[in-house]
Amino acid sequence: MKTGIKIVLSIALFSSLSFSNEQFAMSDADRAMYAEMSENNPADIMVADGEELLDYMGGDEGLAKYLGVTEDELPAYIAGFPRYIKKFDMVVGLDQVIQAMMHDTGKKPFKLKSGNMFSLLAYVKSIANGEKINIDVNANAQMKAAYTLGKKTFMTKRGGRGLGCISCHSSDVVGSVLRTQPLPDLGAKGVASAATWPAYRMTKSSLRTLQRRFQGCMKNALIKVIPLGSPEMVALEVYLTAEAKGSKIAIPGLKR
């Protein structure tokens, strides 16, 4: 699948910002920049880097083989991650699959938080562009447990201010404004976070992954930041991916 990378953007956040209220941080200049970047997502370069890195391991074909599916089945299969994989005996995200594949092809796995891994993850997920998220949280006991853990982690209040993800992302506050930022509905059609990350974050001028985004919210809210790839992080991804089930994958996203 060397058809180049589809450029799709998540316009939902943008449109939610576009009503004309002065207190919103997105100024006209910001909006102009957003419009320009959406034509030419800076993360496309990183996604292309990821494609090149995967080529060293046999490209899409190698990945499909590694995952035990055909190349045709690969996009839909990728749209179902995180999954329980028997060989690893754990529920894994795509980045963790990449680590295992690197190891099994005789390479030293990238760290989950490395830039190369972010690029690889973005490319691999972009293989599923246009597919609908099809995660099955009832597929087995492990997925059920991961979903439950993810939901619990989302609801748990902790940290210096006693906040949980739920404090700012529950349905009763979605659309309200925190400081100058409207609170996004993480599962809603259009935002569907799980379908739009990895994404380019304009405020960070870099490619970020979904789990990295979680860490950003944790840090801002004084919630102790937990490491990428930890069972709770993967579980949070499972939970929010289930929330976005049915949404079309569009990687790389473009975010404020």
């Binding site: 680590q99 760290k111 790839g229």
Partner: peptide, 8 residues
């Protein structure tokens, strides 16, 4: 091989 650090 796969990083899965403890967070609990």
């Amino acid at each position: 091989v796969i990083s899965s650090p403890n967070a609990s």
